[in-house]
Simulated assay, not measured.
Amino acid sequence: MTSLRMGVQLFVVSMLAMTLSSCGDPIDGYCESLKGHQEELTNTLGEGDTGGLIAALPIFEDLERNAPDDIKKDWKTLNTAISGLSDALDEAGVSADDFENGEPPEGISEAEAKKVADAATQVSSTKTQEASVRVQQQARDVCHTSLTL
């Protein structure tokens, strides 16, 4: 009976070790994903405007999916804010480039303009900006990669 129990324990331990080793280090996977998107992010965000931020959303969502637990919440905060702005612009049938000096383009209703303005305020909120800083710091400190949002 003891040898059977010992055999089962060894089997369970070896299976657990194989499972854990096959998962890989989540931080390494995140850093690889971040580095893999680096050039595309640089090109997309290079213009420094809201349109670039919205265009980068699919990349940000991929990084959120790959992010380790300690930074995932910050990616979620960023992506929720950017996605909200993108949705508000889509619903209004305009792009971020259509706004000049913060003024809505002709043909947009007051309600649509308010929704876009509220979403833009969320993107520039302290909460979102702090999340952005933490994401960038994590990229530098852990992944040794520059990420400028």
Rank of each mutant, 00 (worst) to 15 (best):
T44G: 05
S109N: 07
G52A: 15
L41G: 07
P58T: 03
W75D: 04
D49C: 11
F99W: 05
L63V: 01
T80W: 13
K72G: 04
W75R: 06
E47F: 13
G107R: 04
S95K: 09
G102M: 02
A88I: 00
D87K: 15
T42K: 08
D97C: 10
D74Q: 15
G107T: 10
L63F: 06
K76W: 12
A96Q: 06
E61M: 00
E91C: 06
S109L: 03
A111P: 00
W75A: 03
A88P: 01
L63E: 02
K76L: 06
E106K: 10
A55P: 13
A92G: 00
E61K: 14
G93M: 10
R65M: 12
G46M: 01
E112H: 13
F60L: 02
T44E: 01
K114P: 04
E103Q: 07
A96I: 14
G48T: 00
D62F: 03
G93T: 02
K76A: 12
E103I: 02
S109D: 09
F60P: 02
G102E: 00
A113G: 08
L41W: 12
A92M: 03
T50A: 14
L53E: 09
N101E: 15
D87W: 11
S109V: 09
A67D: 02
F60E: 07
L85M: 05
E64P: 01
A88G: 08
L78V: 12
L57F: 04
E64Q: 14
G48D: 01
G52T: 11
D98W: 05
D90P: 03
D90R: 12
T77D: 07
D49R: 09
L85C: 10
T50F: 01
D74L: 12
G48E: 08
D69C: 01
P105S: 04
E64K: 13
P68V: 13
T44Y: 07
W75F: 15
N101M: 12
P68G: 06
G52R: 05
E103S: 06
G51M: 14
A88E: 00
A67C: 09
I54E: 05
I108M: 06
D87A: 15
A55M: 08
L53Y: 04
L78F: 11
D74S: 15
T50Y: 10
A96M: 00
K73I: 15
L57G: 08
E100A: 10
T80L: 15
L45M: 10
E61F: 06
F60W: 08
G84H: 13
E47T: 13
G46T: 01
I82Y: 04
P68K: 14
G46Q: 07
A92E: 04
E47K: 11
D87C: 08
D62H: 12
G48M: 12
I71C: 01
A81I: 08
L78A: 09
E100H: 11
L53P: 06
T42F: 14
I59L: 11
N101H: 09
K114G: 09
